[in-house]
């Protein structure tokens, strides 16, 4: 009677595979459990953080900025999530806050569109929106406005933040600005809104025809500026309404 040799053949192939499967299952099981517990811990921490600091996030702009930066760096969008508005947004109430600000931005842009041709300086927008919100609304920053305008994107209303002459402006009409217009707008901003042909000729080296065409286009075609035919020096001056500082 032969004794079975002690060798690799002694291992039942199938049994081994099964054992490995069991082991791997139990390992991944424990990993999943671990991950789940970590995730729930993270959630609890976040919920706790959010509920503790909710008011501060809403009222303190620098805190809000830091919070949003933190969210971006760990790849969490405060407005995104499985549910409408996101559990994240719901947790913070930040979604509503952002939408509310969006509505206020639209309100200001639309109500000032007549006089500025649909182009408003960021600072001016911030000032008017802040006024609209009153003291209790807490202060807001340019960052908040930019964020809110992003949330308006799906509406397709064409709200856009553009940079003209190093200054941020919000455009509320779908209108492409050509280079000459951008230059003119930038110069007008330095002049409190008033601009004449000679400024473009002297400071930008334009020909008179080019300067006139740019200004007349803005006046007649785009409604971005108003004419003043009683100008003391030049007789004919253009006023870019979005670059003017209005108190009311």
């Amino acid at each position: 009677m032969h004794r079975r040799g002690v060798g690799l053949a002694a291992f039942d192939k199938q049994q081994t595979t099964r054992r490995f499967e069991e082991l791997s299952n139990s390992i991944s099981q424990s990993q999943v459990t671990h991950l789940n517990s970590q995730l729930s811990q993270f959630r609890t921490a976040l919920t706790h953080f959010a509920s503790t600091h909710r008011d501060k996030i809403k009222s303190d702009p620098s805190f809000r900025h830091a919070f949003q930066q933190m969210c971006t760096s760990i790849g969490v969008d405060p407005l995104a999530g499985p549910r409408k508005g996101g559990w994240w947004a719901e947790l913070l109430g930040l979604g509503d806050w952002q939408y509310e600000l969006g509505v206020q931005i639209v309100d200001v842009c639309v109500s000032t569109r007549e006089r500025n041709g649909g182009l408003i300086e960021m600072e001016e927008l911030l000032r008017v929106v802040s006024k609209l919100r009153g003291v209790s609304g807490g202060s807001i920053t340019v960052d908040d406005i930019v964020q809110s305008i992003k949330t308006l994107e799906p509406l397709g209303a064409g709200y856009q933040v553009v940079e003209i002459g190093g200054r941020k402006m919000v455009r509320s009409v779908v209108k492409e600005l050509d280079d000459d217009q951008t230059t003119t707008l930038a110069l007008a901003q330095d002049q409190g809104g008033r601009i004449v042909e000679d400024m473009l000729i002297d400071r930008r080296g334009w020909s008179r025809e080019r300067a006139r065409t740019a200004l007349e286009n803005m006046l007649l075609r785009d409604g971005l500026c108003w004419l003043d035919d009683q100008d003391e020096v030049y007789g004919r001056a253009y006023w870019v309404t979005s670059a003017m500082k209005w108190d009311v």
Partner: peptide, 22 residues
């Protein structure tokens, strides 16, 4: 109103849409 302090407010605007606002 503040618009009364804006120089172009006193000029008849060549752009009909702007003139309507004025």
């Amino acid at each position: 109103p503040s618009i009364h302090a804006a120089p172009p407010f006193f000029t008849k605007q060549p752009n009909p849409a702007t003139e309507a606002i004025v």
